[in-house]
Every structure is written in C-alpha cells, then in structure tokens.
C-alpha cells in the first residue's frame, strides 16, 4: 500500500501539469486564477499523501488544512483585487 500511495502521488503530480499549462498560457487573467485554484486543491491531497510516505500523517494533515485555508483566501483576495480592472477579460499572449 505504501508503494501504491507513492505512485498515486506521482500520478497526481503529473496531472498538475495540465492546470499549470492553463495558468501559464491561459488567454485571460481569470483563466490563470482558475488554474492556480485547481493546482491548490490537488496539493491538499498531495500533502496528505506525502504524510503517509514519511509516516507523519498527524503533522501533515495540519499543513494540508492550513494550505486549504490559504488557497481559498488567495483566490478570494486576488479576484477582489482585480475586480474592476480594465482589460481583465481580454485575451493576452
């Protein structure tokens, strides 16, 4: 089972490349927020898996909880900050 968790953590890391593409190349700024949010919600699961690999689940769960809070606050703050900017919806390269 430890090997299974190690391999699933690797698969999860590989899956994170796809939202990273959206966050780097996304046509609008809002697409980038969305990519960062998706990476954050995967990272919460990944942190608990890292806890299993190091046999310190009790410690890594607290880190995952703090990461989930921080991810939520980051999305709320950034979308409020860019609230009424001009050119938010325009495509840029």
């Amino acid at each position: 089972m430890d090997n299974f968790i190690l391999f699933s953590a690797m698969v999860l890391t590989i899956l994170m490349v796809v939202p990273l593409y959206r966050a780097v190349m996304g046509p609008t700024i809002l697409d980038r927020f969305m990519g960062v949010n998706a990476i954050g919600s995967k990272t919460t699961v990944l942190l608990i898996m890292i806890g299993f690999i190091f046999n310190r689940v009790d410690m890594f769960i607290d880190i995952a909880l703090a990461y989930a809070l921080l991810n939520f606050i980051a999305v709320i703050a950034s979308s409020r900050y860019f609230h009424k900017r001009k050119g938010l919806g325009e495509e840029m390269k």
């Binding site: 949010n37 009424k84 900017r85 938010l88 919806g89």
Partner: peptide, 12 residues
C-alpha cells in the same frame, strides 16, 4: 468570486 469578477469585467 471568480465568476463575479468575470461578469463585472464584461466577459461575454
């Protein structure tokens, strides 16, 4: 929050 920012920016 993200959708609201998009609507207020006028994204169709």
């Amino acid at each position: 929050a993200i959708v609201d920012a998009g609507v207020r920016a006028g994204l169709k």
